[in-house]
Simulated assay, not measured.
Amino acid sequence: MTKAITLAVTGDLVLDEPDPGYWLAEIAPVLQEADLAIGHLEVPHTVSAEQLEGDVPAPGAPLENLDALARAGFDMVSLAGNHMADCGAQGIADTIAELDRLGIGHAGAGADLSRARTPAVAEAKGRRVALLSYNCVGPQAGWAKERSAGCAYLPLDTRDGAPVAPMSEIVGVPATVAEMLAEDIAEARKVADFVIVALHKGKVHTPSFVAPYEREVARLAVDGGADAVVSHHAHIVRGIEFHRGRPIFHGLGNGCVVTRALSPDQDNAARREWATRRRELFGFEPDPAYYLAPFHPEAVNAFIGTLALGDGPPRAAIVPVHVEAPGRPVLAAGPRARAIADYLEKITRDAGLPPIAVNDKGRVEAVS
């Protein structure tokens, strides 16, 4: 029997602040202990000042901050999200060039759609893991085309037929989605032993909720041959389910988000207006102590997901993480770790997903 390889998976990464290594330092040991670590890079790292229309634009983060990801232990990142194209084609090109220089694999964005759909591949213990990455929430202006840069995406149906945008109500999953996933996963399987699919999906800043389309798309990825599905975008963790014995992380929350771009106290009018609307739309007032991570109060309950990939079905677990003010993730222990595990069990039930149990070592299993 071949020894299993371990993966650590995190949600959104936004490193706008100076000394990015400091913000990652407390979770880095878990990433470094795993055979491979995967995160989701939320914003471009670039000097480009271009601003994409179609969503509240994120500013480009410092290019040099990407070095902290390599030092923290990240081997691959997914890029297909609603902000990766915010600084245009140059923002994507700058980000990819620096990731390549650092030896961090990437999937989900590129100079054209073909390259955006190409998997990242990393090797550990003689076995190869492929990562595919898709944007499910728009904005469509940031999606890659045959001859233009952007993100890989899954073409979902909105209620009003309008272009997909982060606040759209998504009501349908066309048959082409299953076909795309099966095609890309089959191609990835030619060069890898395991395939992980990353989905940027869901409704932001809302505890527990998992929309029907989210479950359908994630299950289609498993049906198409994925060994596990990981998700992000909501900036708060979501439940875990198993389909055909394969784990689906419906929301990894924030891996590490430290930015002033979400504050109402700034020069950019669109971002300032969104900070006000966010309170009105989602009904919470961020704790002022979390000025670098002004999210829902429950977003302090976080975790790093882990996967053991071997000859049998993947094994899933969590490493509980507490987000301390003003936004730094730290490993949780003792009663705090148990409280986060209990929270994950609760939000899984509240979302209408099949119940799970998280033991005191973090192992996650379906409850029969």
Rank of each mutant, 00 (worst) to 15 (best):
S263P: 07
N301F: 10
A226Q: 11
V258K: 02
A337R: 02
F303W: 11
P335T: 02
G305W: 05
P286D: 08
A302R: 04
H232I: 02
I340E: 01
R278T: 06
L262N: 00
Y291E: 11
R246L: 03
P264Y: 01
A226M: 14
A234S: 14
H296E: 10
L331H: 00
R260F: 13
R271E: 03
A269R: 11
R328D: 02
G283A: 09
P294T: 01
A270R: 14
F295S: 14
F249W: 10
A228C: 15
W274F: 15
R278S: 11
R315Q: 12
A293F: 07
T276S: 04
R244W: 04
E241S: 12
A299K: 03
P286T: 08
I304N: 04
G283E: 05
G327T: 00
A226D: 05
F303M: 10
N301P: 14
L309D: 05
D227A: 13
N268W: 01
G225A: 09
A337I: 00
G334C: 05
G327M: 01
P294C: 12
P264C: 06
I248G: 10
P286H: 10
S231W: 14
H233G: 12
L262M: 12
V229S: 09
A332H: 06
P297A: 09
A269K: 12
G255Q: 07
G327Q: 06
N301K: 15
H250M: 08
V257M: 15
H250G: 14
L331F: 01
